[in-house]
């Protein structure tokens, strides 16, 4: 499934860039705030519990940041595998200054799901993935505000 969208952040681009390319920070924006371990230069792994109402699943996942063009764009790849199936998301993000203290992030990408969640849960997938992206961006913005306000 294709994903596409944009979000205006309340903070300057260089700080947002630092946050985005730091998986430890990104992890805190994901549902359940998983802890991540560094496994390579730009690669991390961790466990994440996703809960959508009564449906919950634990996923063991990897996160990596590639194609970095600081402080403007990069590619985030998230992969997770659990009892209910697997998820893989690849997103290209592109950031531009949007007036003083504002940064516009555009993202495009592709989300793949497989296994049980794909075969019997498709009805919810679009809504869930959009909801999770919105939630993660919101949290990232909170972190950004805290970080940039603190400087």
């Amino acid at each position: 499934m294709k994903i596409e969208g944009q979000y205006t952040f309340d903070g300057p681009r260089p700080i947002l860039w630092e946050l985005v390319r730091d998986p430890q920070v990104l992890a805190t924006c994901l549902p359940g705030s998983p802890s991540v371990r560094k496994t390579g230069e730009h690669e991390y792994e961790g466990e994440i519990a996703i809960r959508v109402g009564p449906i919950s699943g634990a996923f063991a996942g990897q996160l990596s940041v590639t194609n970095e063009v600081p402080p403007a764009s990069c590619t985030l790849t998230v992969e997770g595998k659990g009892k209910v199936g697997f998820v893989k998301g690849v997103g290209n993000i592109d950031m531009t200054d949007q007036g003083p203290g504002k940064t516009l992030m555009k993202y495009t990408g592709e989300v793949q799901i497989g296994g049980k969640v794909a075969s019997v849960g498709q009805r919810l997938f679009d809504s869930v993935s959009r909801g999770m992206i919105d939630q993660a961006l919101g949290k990232l913005n909170e972190t950004l505000q805290a970080r940039s306000g603190g400087r």
């Binding site: 009892k83 049980k116 969640v117």
Partner: peptide, 12 residues
């Protein structure tokens, strides 16, 4: 609604 999801083991 709950038991079908339990049968699929989407909910445990």
């Amino acid at each position: 609604s709950l038991v079908p999801m339990m049968n699929f083991r989407l909910v445990q």
